[in-house]
Amino acid sequence: MPINFKIFVWLLCVLPALTNASGTKSVDMQVQADIHASMQMQWHRIEVDDLHYQQMKNKIKLKPGWVLLPYGLYVELQTNDVSRIVSLRVNNLISTNKIDTIATDSIYISHNGNALVTAKKDLAILDPEDRGLLKKHVLLFVIKTNPTQKPGQYLANFKFVSNTLP
């Protein structure tokens, strides 16, 4: 019997067994991930000798009677939310004896060295376009003084207002 024919016959007999031997099986596992909206804010006070304070202070043009406070805020914000906006709200300053106030229409904010804006309205510091980005902000505060304001120590309250656009 020619050798080729022998091999052919052998293969015919063996091949089904080989196929069985090299068979593959697999198991599929369905995966589901539920990612929630998330936001992170971090801040610290900066003082006159802070580099950030000095850099931004040099960009502010103060009019006579306007006082730049010797402290500011450094803020970092980040969110994964597609329609989140975050604003800074400054409330009236209240004296420590709880009697006197300095209204927000006398308070101005320098945001990253930009032109002063009134603290009467919320200052937007994070827009939907900023999604995923780590946003850094240096906020300095200026008081437009007037004779009705009483000297003393005042309590400041800031709020980060987070909104989702419906």
Partner: peptide, 27 residues
Amino acid sequence: SFRLTTTWQDTPGIYKGKVTIAFLNNP
């Protein structure tokens, strides 16, 4: 044990996929 790593750039919501465990018998 399985671990998923997410970043700030990932949009919130439900994601679906699969993990396949395959077995190969070697002759």
